[in-house]
């Protein structure tokens, strides 16, 4: 490498290190691409609260909603790479761009760590004639497109996972979030739904909603006694995850500081208890493996997203 370039690189590295040495010197913004009061928002607030203690500066939540997460994540990816804007990224980062609903994809971020993963759970109302997952599958086979599914988000990756794997079709009724799809189920207007356990745990514990199957890899601790899809003989897994990321050119030292702070937060007994109490899953993946995780996830989602694209008429 020629002299001037070497000097320039050294200067950059030194200044980067100096910059990082004082970090953080003021509040850090955490962009949450979903509405205040929702599941992603709750996870963000708790992990931020704990990580802030380690970093010594407050972490302020900024809800930037829109486009099922696309707006907030786009802003996060394009923000200044100085470590003062962190973004909570979710599985939509891997799915939306494949159907032209987002301008950002995993490679537009520098991942910090994954903090949470929640499986989908199949729910029916308490007096439903559908007593088991088999009833749903057979009902859909007998009368394709007649069983009413209350969908909390469009496109619905959870239902699509089930549809593509098992070759079924349902009558999807669109709703704006679990806050609308769950009442639809409670009121008997739809036959079943798929949400994350934390979104319906209160109704499940009260017996208003009955979980028929959980779509995780192995038995899910938060829902003891509920069989997994695989145990029932259906090879369907569906989940969502949430993690943290910064813009791509953020100095390495700063990203590492963030990762260590968030790791401490996730490992803390406070966080573990908090998430367990609310039936939110904890899963930690460090920065080094997070990008691979996301790229593999995007690949896994590709067949489903292709179907969505076809449905959109493209």
């Amino acid at each position: 490498m020629c002299r001037p370039t070497l000097v320039a690189c050294l200067a950059l590295a030194v200044s980067g290190a100096l910059f990082a040495a004082g970090y953080p010197e003021k509040e850090i913004r955490l962009i949450v691409p979903f509405a205040a009061g929702g599941g992603t928002d709750a996870v963000a607030r708790i992990v931020a609260d704990l990580a802030a203690k380690d970093l010594g500066q407050p972490i302020v939540i900024m809800n930037k909603t829109g486009g099922a997460g696309a707006v907030g994540m786009t802003e996060g990816a394009r923000s200044r790479p100085d470590g003062y804007t962190v973004t909570m990224i979710t599985r939509e980062l891997c799915s939306l761009y494949q159907v032209d609903l987002s301008l950002v994809q995993p490679k537009d971020f520098l991942p910090v760590c994954l903090v949470n993963e929640d499986p989908a759970v199949v729910l029916v109302p308490k007096n439903s004639p559908l007593k088991s997952l088999k009833d749903i599958v057979e009902g859909a086979r007998a009368r394709p497109g007649s069983l009413k599914f209350a969908s909390s988000a469009q496109p619905n990756i959870y239902l699509l996972a089930m549809m593509t794997e098992l070759g079924l079709s349902f009558n999807q009724i669109p709703y704006g979030g679990a806050g609308e799809s769950i009442p639809a189920l409670l009121g008997g207007h739809c036959d079943f739904t798929m949400v994350n356990p934390g979104e319906a745990i209160a109704q499940i514990r009260a017996g208003e909603l009955i979980p028929l199957a959980v779509c995780s890899d192995g038995p899910y601790a938060g829902l003891p006694g509920v069989p997994t899809m695989r145990e029932l003989g259906y090879n369907v897994t569906a989940s969502t995850w949430r993690g943290l990321a910064v813009p791509p050119r953020t100095p390495r030292e700063i990203a590492e500081k963030l990762e260590s702070a968030f790791k401490k937060a996730v490992d803390s007994p406070e966080f573990q208890k908090f998430m367990a109490d609310r039936t939110l899953g904890v899963r930690f993946i460090p920065a080094a493996e997070y990008m691979d995780f996301m790229l593999r996830d995007a690949e896994a989602l590709a067949p489903i997203m292709k179907i969505v694209k076809a449905q959109q008429g493209k």
């Binding site: 009061g37 929702g38 806050g179 409670l186 745990i201 209160a202 208003e208």
Partner: peptide
């Protein structure tokens, strides 16, 4: 029921969850 009636109560629901309460039928 643990289901919000409007946009503000949706946030209150989140607040309750963060506070450790489980708003729902119980």
């Amino acid at each position: 029921l643990g289901v919000p009636g409007d946009a503000v109560t949706a946030i209150l629901l989140g607040a309750l969850i963060i506070q450790g309460l489980q708003p729902g039928p119980l």
